[in-house]
């Protein structure tokens, strides 16, 4: 079912963006990277604003990731 979330190419300059995304984490510890990612998600989510788009994005991101049955094992 086509939703409101755009999944065809929207990035103006995909390779440049990807490089800056990885580049933004340069020199950071895993913990700092985690913080950066979280800040980025919040900034972008606020920019989008539309709850329908955000809900679809959450579902699309979660798709195919199943929780471990027994995470400690």
């Amino acid at each position: 079912m086509p939703g409101k979330l755009r999944t065809e190419l929207g990035l103006a300059s995909p390779d440049d963006f990807y490089e800056s995304l990885i580049g933004a984490h340069e020199g950071l510890s895993d913990g700092q990277s985690e913080l950066l990612n979280a800040k980025l998600v919040l900034l972008l989510a606020n920019h989008i604003g539309d709850n329908v788009v955000l809900t679809e994005a959450l579902a699309a991101a979660r798709a195919g990731i199943e929780p471990d049955q027994n995470p400690s094992a």
């Binding site: 985690e34 913080l35 979280a38 800040k39 998600v41 919040l42 900034l43 606020n46």
Partner: peptide, 20 residues
Amino acid sequence: RVYRDAVLNLARSHEFARRL
């Protein structure tokens, strides 16, 4: 915890995060 810290961190300079 990470998201909470991200919100607090952003709230210092970004208005939207204060509401979170």
